[in-house]
Design a protein around this nucleic acid. Sequence first.
DNA 1: GTGAAAGCGCTAACAA
DNA 2: TTGTTAGCGCTTTCAC
Lengths: 326, 326
Amino acid sequence: MASIKDVANLAGVGLGTASRALSGNGYVAPETKRKIEAAARKLAYTPNVLAQNLLKNRSGIIGILVPALDHCFYSRLVQQLESDLYQKGYKTMLCCTVSGEHGEQDYLDMLENNLVDGIITATHSFNDQAYLRSNRVIVSFDRDFGGHIPMVRSDHREAGRTAAEHFIKRGCRKVLSIYGEDAREGHISVGMAHEELKSCLEASGIRVLEEYTSQDRFHMGYYIERAGECLEKYGDIDGVFASDPLAEAFLWESQRRGKRIPEELKIISYDGTEETGNTSPRISAVVQQIDKISGCLTDILTRRIRGEEIIDGKITEIVWRQGETC
Amino acid sequence: MASIKDVANLAGVGLGTASRALSGNGYVAPETKRKIEAAARKLAYTPNVLAQNLLKNRSGIIGILVPALDHCFYSRLVQQLESDLYQKGYKTMLCCTVSGEHGEQDYLDMLENNLVDGIITATHSFNDQAYLRSNRVIVSFDRDFGGHIPMVRSDHREAGRTAAEHFIKRGCRKVLSIYGEDAREGHISVGMAHEELKSCLEASGIRVLEEYTSQDRFHMGYYIERAGECLEKYGDIDGVFASDPLAEAFLWESQRRGKRIPEELKIISYDGTEETGNTSPRISAVVQQIDKISGCLTDILTRRIRGEEIIDGKITEIVWRQGETC
DNA sequence: GTGAAAGCGCTAACAA
DNA sequence: TTGTTAGCGCTTTCAC
């Protein structure tokens, strides 16, 4: 592996000159420059990024923390983030915390360690304190750190209202609102959508039932199981509000039980990834705009890295997607 | 940000001693060690990984290249890889190439650049030559580099035979085999499953139609579109063999058209992620064992990094999953 | 316009 | 057992 020293030697110039020629800042005679470039080509020289990083004290890497990738919302979000970060000149380091064996702490350490320049976190499980220590280069998705870390999230209240409006319009009388335990406990703010839904529906005299899902289990099998349990337990619900995969699970389990959708049961999903927009029937949804969310997250983070003092987050608009289930 | 020098100064010892005490290799008196540790704690010292990496000339990071994350097979694979790599002490750098604007080359450069210690590639779009230059630390999933880079893949021939067997058992007469153009062109080996399916079915006097999907488009909307087109074009097919999301698309589009599944159309998916195991009806599938695949990939790669000369890849077994669509 | 030298933060070899 | 020194590969003064 040729180093810049080798290049300088071959070109018969000093090490510093080679550096200037290759990196392009600093004066260097056109003639000399050509010689150096020729030498570099001949030796197939590539700069050692590790050394550059040590000097600049930055790595150009952003860490993304998500609970899991087999939840379509997160896989879409990660894909979008990776793309946006790439555009901004950053590489993406991925950490899925759900498997449990993972030290989320490990990744926060990487921040102290200079291995990553910043972190975007979309997890819920970890203790706040660990994050707050190094808050300058962290941005959170949907998790409130009490205003110490900028948070980006969808307009959950509006989402709840929108869903409520459609349940009401369709004449529902008894709606099931089901979401993650972590949201219920207030760790992540998506619970606000369910709160708002509840108060809107109850204000219209509609009964609202609440159920919760474990925050440690993200796979479809579990959602199917929960959907089945709920359908057994509440035979007479005529509406369900749930996140994408869970909404899908309700659709499938209802079909399996011969329940007619939307006649006997209206389903509205919250997330509205493409996944649920193509089922048969298509699921009606309150859509979180992943591209906007990703744009805000990466924008805030990169500006913070550059030293801007940003403490405010951003609330992105939700959109209604008319499907065939409500 | 405190450096090890600061720690040494505060503890009143030499820089080398501090290093030895903190990293744990080399002799250091218990007494001195305590002092150094106390100083480190006081200064909230964390080692600068960038510097360690430069010295060791390794980063502990593995790059994973996939076409996209909104294809459930890849998101599952990435999640599994990340988990396996973490167990082996590596961090994961992610690159989704589908968005196009991405330089796959950029990531290969990171290998030369020492930013990643190795690469697991599951993409199809890029030219072979770029990969072959630095083949020592690359492992491929399902893409054949002519024996120069170890490849891990499922037993596609067996997969094709298994699917054929079930179509035959169910009395199909005209089966559609649809897959990516890249596989058709031989860039990735999954095409072998379709080849084998075809020859098995034709040997039994069953007609096989072939269609292809674009390698640049991975999202559900596109699959739905293609499924619709095929159902229009071939009104009389009674069997479909396709990858997971496409199989789902066929299921939904068929239901939308009032086609009875499995009576009028049998569907077998190849991949068999959990995603398709829970639809209504459940999709019958030839399952690629992602955990095994990931295990082989990470095992081979880490051993190559350690210097072992491994050129052989690995073929993992497939498994039949009986669903309700065939 | 160019070369020499210092130093990013760390580890390892070598003396002491 | 410990301190000193020499780099890892690069960039960036600062004299020349």
